[in-house]
């Protein structure tokens, strides 16, 4: 056995590890640099927002200057109005999403794994999936009342199909070799479900979860605008009706920030859950 070539193998692997270690911060760095490149345009946008109403280019009643909006925003934070409404909206969206996870994961695993079960259920799922959750709001209200349940239901409905479809495709695309290997080691069906199919589907499920969370937030805002006495959607809608436009824009900006924050959080969570996969590119074979 040649000792030198042995070392070479290890060297190659060590080099690739070294490369991976440095690849991550570099990617992060370039990501930040990319974001910074977009900042000037954003500054121009905010400057225009501030200046245009003051210069009479836009009607300040419909478009109050940014500083006035920020003032209203700080006032709403101070009085606790904003915090309370954010809390209510997020609670509805989270409950709806959690219910969707509880339903979509087991159902998706079954549909992805058992072709016959999928044949029985797929048409039903496709029919429901293509029915707008907002069109169903009156139905939810009739069934569940005007209270929390109907808002949670609409969030559930908006998010469940993203999770379901991605769970099914994740389960279906599990490499048959993994299943064969697990079977060869004497794994039971339950072992194969829990220790092979589920972890192998995580990347797909996580991608679905990201879409589902966004859909859930969109749904709660819409529902609150249509039929609610609280929440961010209600706040925005009500401010518009009362012509309190600074409050309205403050609400809209708050939604933007929540959207950005949730997106970054979910991307980070997804990256963490699938860390084993991210390093695959450029790996030696």
């Amino acid at each position: 056995m040649s000792v030198t070539s042995e070392n070479r193998t290890h060297d190659a692997a060590a080099f690739s590890l070294w490369r991976h270690r440095f690849a991550f911060p570099i990617r992060m760095g370039s990501g930040l640099a990319t974001i910074l490149k977009g900042v000037p345009l954003l500054v121009v946008f905010f400057a225009f927002w501030e200046a245009a109403p003051r210069l009479g280019l836009l009607n300040p009643i419909f478009f109050p200057p940014l500083s006035v909006v920020v003032e209203a925003w700080l006032e709403m934070i101070r009085t606790g109005v904003l915090g309370r409404n954010i809390g209510i909206s997020l609670q509805r969206a989270t409950l709806g999403f959690a219910l969707a996870v509880a339903v979509a994961l087991p159902l998706g695993v079954l549909m992805g794994r058992y072709a016959r079960f999928e044949q029985l259920t797929d048409l039903m799922v496709q029919t429901l999936r293509n029915t707008s959750q907002f069109a169903l709001l009156p139905v939810f209200i009739m069934l569940l009342g005007i209270g929390e349940a109907s808002k949670v239901a609409i969030c559930f409905y908006a998010s469940v199909f993203f999770l379901l479809v991605n769970t099914i495709s994740g389960v279906k695309s599990v490499d048959p070799l993994f299943l064969k290997a697990a079977r060869s080691m004497g794994a039971s069906d339950l072992d194969i479900f829990v220790k092979v199919i589920l972890p192998a589907s995580i990347p797909s499920i996580a991608a679905g979860a990201r879409l589902a969370v966004k859909a859930s937030i969109v749904a709660v805002i819409g529902a609150e605008m249509l039929a609610a006495q609280s929440g961010l959607g209600y706040l925005i809608h009500q401010s518009q009706l009362m012509m309190e436009t600074p409050d309205m824009y403050a609400g809209i900006l708050t939604l933007t920030f929540i959207g950005l924050a949730v997106n970054y959080l979910l991307v980070a969570l997804e990256a963490r859950a699938t860390a084993w996969r991210g390093q695959a590119e450029g790996a030696p074979h």
Partner: peptide, 25 residues
């Protein structure tokens, strides 16, 4: 026990955890 051409290691498990799989089940 079986060894495959394409290794058939579980990519979400570390080397250690991959070996433990056979023992876990």
């Amino acid at each position: 026990a079986y060894v495959f051409q394409q290794y058939a290691l579980f990519p979400w498990r570390t080397a250690q955890q991959n070996i433990e799989f056979a023992l876990e089940v």
